[in-house]
Design a binder for these strands. Sequence first.
DNA 1: CGCGGATGTGCACGATGTAAACACCCTGTG
DNA 2: CACAGGGTGTTTACATCGTGCACATCCGCG
Lengths: 218, 218
Amino acid sequence: MAKTASASRQQQPYHHGNLAEALVAAGLDMAAEGGPEALSLREAARRAGVSPTAVYRHFEDRTALVLAVKNVVLARLAAAMEQALAKPVPRGMDPAARAHEHLIRIGTAYVEFAVAHPGDYRVMFADGCFPDDTPSGVAGEHVSGRPYGILSNVLDEMVATGALAAAARPGAEAPAWAMVHGLASLILEGPYGALPPGEREAMVAMSLEIIAAGLTGR
Amino acid sequence: MAKTASASRQQQPYHHGNLAEALVAAGLDMAAEGGPEALSLREAARRAGVSPTAVYRHFEDRTALVLAVKNVVLARLAAAMEQALAKPVPRGMDPAARAHEHLIRIGTAYVEFAVAHPGDYRVMFADGCFPDDTPSGVAGEHVSGRPYGILSNVLDEMVATGALAAAARPGAEAPAWAMVHGLASLILEGPYGALPPGEREAMVAMSLEIIAAGLTGR
DNA sequence: CGCGGATGTGCACGATGTAAACACCCTGTG
DNA sequence: CACAGGGTGTTTACATCGTGCACATCCGCG
C-alpha cells in the first residue's frame, strides 16, 4: 500500500492497476455484507470490473482470495485489540491489577469486534486454518502484532506482575482464546445473538471475569 | 426408527418408502464426510435414488434438510454427554465433588464428540440458529434431553450440592458452553487441530478445570 | 371404480468455481 | 528504435449447485 508513488496520472497504469488489491477490497466488502459464504470469486471480479477468470492471475483459488481477505481482517482485529490496550488505565492501579485489566480488555475487544463485524469475523475461521498466526510453536517476535501474539504478551505481563502464577502460564492462551472465540461464536452463530445488547455485554463481561479468575486462581 | 413393522415385503411400500428418513440418513453421511458445506441437496437425492426436485416434497429448502440433520446430530451429542454422566463415580466422593466431576465429564464429552465427528459437529452451527435448543428462556422440561438442558441440570446439581454458589448460578451456562464450544471450534477450524492427540487432550482437560475453577471460585 | 391429493420426474434457468485457448500491452533487450 | 516475451485480462466452455414449473404416477378413500 501507499505505492501510488510515481503515478502522476491516475488512469490505470497498465492493465488494471493492481487487481489484487482491488479484489481483496471487494472481498472485504462482500465479507462484511454476508460472511465468507457470500465471498464469491465472480462477484469480486465483477466489482473490480474485470472478467471472472482474471482473478486466477492473482489468486490460485477462491480459497486463496478468502485467505488474503482473512489476513486483512486478522490485522484489523489485532488493531482493535491494541487500541483497547492503549486506552489509559485508572491512576494508582497496581501492576498486577493492570495486567488483569489488560486481559479483560483484549477479551472484550475481541468479542466486540466479532459483534460489530460479524462477516469479517467469520471469514477468519473459514475453510482452512490460520494463515500465519502461530498455532503452538510460539517463537519470538513473529508472534506479535497479531491477535494471538497480543494475548501471549498480556499473559506474559500477568506473570511478570504476579497476577498469574508462572506455573499456570504454559498453554494459558488456549483457555483464554477458547473462551472469547466461544463467546463470539455463540453470539454470531448460536443462540446468544438473540440477547438484547445490554444483557449480552453483561454476559460477556461475566464470562471474562470467570475465565480470568480461573486462570489466576483469584 | 424401528418402523419396519407391517412391511412384510421390503419393496418400497409405495413411492419410495419414506424418502424423508432416507434423505436425512444420506445427509448424515454427507455431513460426516465433509461437514455442512458438503451436504448437497442433489447429492442427497442421488443417494436416495430419487430425482433432485423430489426433495422439495419433504423439505422446503436445502436449509430445511440441513436443519433436520442438525436435529439428529444434536440428539447424538446429547446422548454422548448423558453416557459420560452414566459411568460410575469413584466411591466415597462427596456430592459436591461429584457435581464438579459431572461438569468436567460433559465438557470432555462435548469436545470429544466434536473431535470424533467433526462434520457432524459443524452441522450444528451451520446457517441459522439452533432448531429447538433453548437460547435464553430456559423453561421447564422442554430443556432436558438436549445438550443445553444437560448442562443446565449439572449446574443445578452443583448448586444443590454446594459446589457452586447460588449467586453464581444465573447465566452460568454461557461461560461453560462458550468454553467447550471455543475449544471444539479451535480444534476443528483453528490451529489447535494440529496438536498431537495427547497434548490436545491435556489442553482440553486443563481448560475445563480452569473454567470450573472460575465458576466455583475454587 | 374412479377421483383427488400426495409424491416423484423432467426440464429449465441462473448462479457458482474453474480449465483452456486466445488477445493485449508493458518492459527489457538487442 | 524495433521486437520478442511474459505478465495480465478475455472469451468460451463445462460441471456443479439450488430451485421453480408443468407434468406423470400411484395410493387410499369415497
